[in-house]
Amino acid sequence: MSDLVVAVLGKYNYWLYIILMMIGIYAMIAKKNLIKKLVGMNIFQTSIILFYVSIGCKKGGTIPILEHSPGHHMVEPAHYINPLPHVLMLTAIVVSVSTFGVALALALKIYRKHKTLEEDEILMQLRPE
């Protein structure tokens, strides 16, 4: 019984991340509105970033900003949270907002031409009579 409790406490975070990821991918597949698809894409993106950041997390660790004193002593890496995933994901967030801007620009172009953002209505207009 206690093994099961340990397994659940160690893994439930990952399960919730996967649920979040699946919400994003479902919105990308099933929603017909283009902006809703973009929201799904962003949810998917953030859940992957969340997963990466959680890899670097350490129980009992502190934030990765070291003490800077003249006679600095040896740093014990086990006491600090792993900074490497943070670096990778920090740039990914800023890139994600600029790609979101480009995607919204494309949606604006589509709206200017077809006067709608619904996928099925755009397909109806594109279909030859």
């Binding site: 902006i35 962003n42 953030t46 970033i49 950041v53 959680s54 670097g56 997390c57 350490k58 660790g61 502190t62 934030i63 990765p64 900003i65 949270i81 995933p85 943070h86 994901m89 920090l90 967030i93 800023v94 907002v97 979101f100 801007g101 919204l104 949606a107 604006l108």
Partner: peptide, 26 residues
């Protein structure tokens, strides 16, 4: 989780500028 830099970026980018872009597009 202790990822202070990432959360700072998300607070300024995701909750700030990204929402503004979204509202402008809508």
């Amino acid at each position: 989780m202790g990822a202070v830099d990432v959360s700072f970026t998300e607070a300024s980018v995701g909750a700030g500028v990204s929402t503004v872009f979204f509202v402008a597009a809508v």
